[in-house]
Every structure is written in C-alpha cells, then in structure tokens.
C-alpha cells in the first residue's frame, strides 16, 4: 500500500478526535488515530501508513514511529485476520495459560509470533489483560474469550475460521464531538 487513505467516515472520526485536545496539543490524538489506522489497514502499521498518520496530525514521521514501536498493541509486521492474544501472566499462568498456548501451537502448526500459511491466524502471547478472575483467557479483536478450556479453544478456532472475517477493534457506535 503506497498511498494509504482513510475512508471519509474515518477521516471525520479523526477530526472529532483532534477536537478533544487544545489546538496546540494535537499530538494527543496520535494513539487513537493509530488504532483507527491499524483497524482500517489490515491490522498492522506499515511505514507508509505511519507516514500518512504523521501527515494527518502534522507530526514528523519519527514521532509516529517511536510511539508505534513502544506500545505492544501496534503490529509493525503483517498479521493474520485473527490475532489470538493469549494472556500468559500471573493468574492466567496459574490456571493453565501454557496449555492453551501449546494447544493452539499444535493445532495451527505455528509457534508464538507466527502466522498460519493461509493468513488466517497469528498467535501472540500478551501480558495481563485484566481478566484474572476468568482465567485462562485470550483476546481476539476487541473480544475477550474467558474461562477457556481446550475444547472452547477448538470451537473458537472453528468459528473464526468459518466466519473468515478480520477481527479488529470496532469503532465506537457513537463518539462525542
């Protein structure tokens, strides 16, 4: 994608975001806008996409790169349509997160950090997602899948596969101007 361009709807949302901060503090919109970019451009942030975001917010590209590379939710490499993010910390570990990870690795034939050949799934391990009382859990898009068993994981993978859609972060139904 050499010339990324937001849809008019997303551009309107970017303008809404910018109005949330003082006129000389537009950089505050950077992280929300990077989320919009990741949702719109195949789930990851390529250099042209980051440069586009920089131009929208009148920032130097480096200001975007340094932020995008700091936060774990921003993918700087292509990812599958469904990124399975398994929590590996603390209570999830106590309750069997490692079994979940190994099960998915075996089932999909990939290791943590890899994407299946058909581009459908990427497997990631992430740190505590605040779902410790319903451990183990994984996140896909904005959805939490909690109290996992290996059987539930199997069912989820079949569901996601037959659905075939990219899972991402849905825009708010209503965003205040």
């Amino acid at each position: 994608m050499s010339n990324p361009q937001f849809s008019p709807e997303t551009l309107a949302l970017v303008e809404t975001m910018k109005r949330r901060y003082p006129a000389d503090r537009q950089k505050s919109a950077l992280i929300p806008v990077l989320h919009l970019a990741q949702a719109e451009f195949d789930g990851w942030l390529s250099v042209p996409v980051m440069d586009y975001v920089a131009s929208l917010l009148s920032l130097q590209p480096i200001e975007v790169y340094e932020v995008a590379s700091f936060y774990s939710m921003f993918n700087l490499k292509p990812v599958g349509k469904c990124v399975l993010e398994v929590c590996r910390t603390s209570s999830c570990w106590l309750m069997g997160a490692e079994d979940v990870v190994r099960h998915i690795e075996k089932k999909l034939g990939i290791r943590v950090g890899e994407t299946t050949g058909d581009g459908m799934f990427t497997l990631k391990t992430v740190e505590c997602l605040g779902s410790c009382g319903t451990a183990p859990m994984l996140q896909c898009g904005s959805d939490y899948y909690e109290n996992l068993t290996l059987e539930k994981v199997d069912n989820l993978i079949s569901e996601l596969r037959s659905d075939g859609r990219r899972r991402t972060y849905p825009k708010a139904d209503r965003v205040m101007d």
Binding site: R20, A29, I31, P32, L34, E63, V67, F70, Y71, M176
Partner: peptide
C-alpha cells in the same frame, strides 16, 4: 465540563501517573 475517553495501546508502565500523562500527550510512556 467536557469529558473524553482516551485509549492507550498496551503498556503496563502507563499506569504510572506521569507515564500516563506522557501517553495522553501522544508520546512513549
């Protein structure tokens, strides 16, 4: 009073209040 939701992007450190403010200003935490 205007109230806005600001979304982070995955960083434990942003729970520290000054890192949170940096992040809210659109920077690394």
């Amino acid at each position: 009073c205007d109230l806005y939701v600001q979304i982070g992007a995955g960083a434990y450190i942003c729970g520290e209040e000054t890192a949170l403010l940096e992040s809210l200003e659109g920077k690394r935490g």
